[in-house]
Nucleic acid binder design. Structure first.
Lengths: 140, 140
DNA sequence: TATTAAAGGAGAATTATTCTCTTTAAGAAA
DNA sequence: TTTCTTAAAGAGAATAATTCTCCTTTAATA
């Protein structure tokens, strides 16, 4: 995603385009392994040394609220972030703190069909996300 | 689960049985809607007014590490806890911070069969948990 | 009952995040 | 382009959850 595409998606959500917002968005795209706010800050400060910590948190919040990024949570860790590019689930490594995306169209279709047929009484489903917990093989 | 059963499960994990550990475990069982550390503290202090905050956190940590309870995370919220009684998933309400358990044997069987057949290259699956996001119907 | 390693208590410290208040600048309008 | 308005950014204090340190107590075992 290029800088002007980022601008468009901000405008599309009725948000003002600012250098800080573009920087945060670019950082999340670049740091593609679910960076924390701190990772993002560290990366951005290379090019924007004076950006305020609170600004990065505010930008992450507004981007997440508008659905441009996702908040990802770990069992132990602080909040982490994820650009919303396509539907995917997450692989969580028990041993390390590694998180990877996992996309699986067949799985999604199966789940959609399942819940369409069954539903959950008293609850309207918006989204179903899998947390697949386990370990990455040593060779990785 | 009675107090002596809690004791047995602690012993079974090689843990010493202490009044504090029993109190924390009992609180999680009693406060069955995924209490936070603060909820647990508040509840325990009724009967154990002098328990140290750090003790509760340490007990939660050791119970979770030994697999006697689960850590549950919300998108926005602090860590919350859950007694491990059976396999279940979670319903997250977008509008409120409500979290409910969702058990579904058929779903579990379907997922187990799916991943048994397909697997994930380079990853050994230990557990698959669903986060079902949506809204509870008004009548609830 | 004496021993000892594990666990608990107290409170300071840390860390991620939010808040408050002021200043700046993006985007709309003149 | 300049002006205006309001959203956004900056700075840093405040907060809240959690962890740490160090000392004391106690559960389990001999």
């Amino acid at each position: 995603m290029k800088s002007n595409e980022i601008s468009s998606s901000l405008v599309g959500k009725g948000l003002k385009v600012t250098p800080q917002r573009i920087a945060v968005f670019e950082a999340i795209l670049k740091l593609n392994n679910h960076p924390s706010a701190e990772h993002i800050l560290e990366y951005i400060r290379k090019t924007h040394p004076n950006i305020a910590t609170g600004t990065v948190y505010k930008v992450l919040d507004v981007l997440a609220d508008k659905g441009l990024i996702h908040r990802v949570k770990t069992e132990r860790d602080v909040m982490r972030y994820d650009a919303v590019l396509d539907r995917h689930h997450h692989l969580y490594c028990i041993e390390t703190e590694r998180i990877e995306d996992y996309s699986d169209k067949d799985l999604d279709n199966m789940l959609t069909a399942y819940f369409k047929k069954r539903g959950i009484p008293g609850f309207t489903i918006e989204d179903v996300k899998l947390q697949i917990v386990g370990t990455f093989d040593k060779s990785n």
